[in-house]
């Protein structure tokens, strides 16, 4: 029996659906099915990863670099995400040739907002954590951990990522490059 503190079946099913969407996405990346992965994004996607600064507690609003104005680690649209996939396919992108081994772990998935309604979910705001393990050549290891906030939109009956904000928990990046997708 549902009480007001227990999520309804519709919510549980939606949460399950979105978790599976993210796990399938992680498989595409880790199995290097990059063209399939690209198709998960809307044509107007914004894929943005700001810098994070050490600031005083009273300036926490300045912790992340500002979107569209400041520097960032990565700031992409569909065209440039596509170019990154094309670069991987050249076989002479030395940073990923030979390919790194990667595992994307996605956890703490939450749906923060459902629009226009739970009965007819067409746009979602979600939040999750990621842990990406990259192992390269013989002994190189990168561990990238952080938060991700997405806007998912339903297009032709399929969920698509319309916006992705990536908050990496590193001030000085401890990897020589960022050639993984988040």
């Amino acid at each position: 029996m549902a009480t007001e503190h227990t999520p309804g079946m519709q919510t549980l099913l939606l949460e399950r659906e979105i978790e599976q969407f993210y796990y399938a996405e992680a498989d595409m990346l880790d199995e290097r099915r990059f063209n399939e992965w690209l198709a998960l994004f809307t044509d107007d996607v914004r894929y943005w990863m700001p810098l994070v600064a050490n600031v005083q507690y009273r300036h926490m609003d300045k912790e992340y670099s500002r979107e569209g104005v400041d520097n960032a680690w990565i700031d992409e649209d569909k065209r440039t995400l596509t170019q990154r996939v094309q670069q991987l396919a050249t076989g002479i992108h030395w940073a990923e040739e030979p390919r790194s081994r990667m595992s994307h772990l996605i956890t703490n998935v939450r749906i923060l907002d459902v629009g226009p309604s739970l009965d007819d979910p067409r746009e979602l705001t979600t939040k999750c954590r990621f842990l990406i393990y990259r192992n390269r050549m013989e002994t190189e290891v990168d561990v990238l951990v952080g938060k991700r906030s997405d806007v998912l939109r339903k297009e032709q009956g399929q969920w698509r990522v319309a916006r992705r904000e990536i908050f990496l928990d590193q001030n000085v990046l401890l990897s020589k490059n960022l050639t993984t997708f988040f």
């Binding site: 700001p50 810098l51 600064a53 670099s65 500002r66 104005v69 400041d70 520097n71 960032a72 680690w73 001030n171 000085v172 990046l173 401890l174 990897s175 020589k176």
Partner: peptide, 13 residues
């Protein structure tokens, strides 16, 4: 002027 924020990263070189 510079865009706000400096990219800082480690490289094994």
């Amino acid at each position: 002027e510079i865009l706000g924020g400096v990219q800082k990263w480690r490289m094994p070189c």
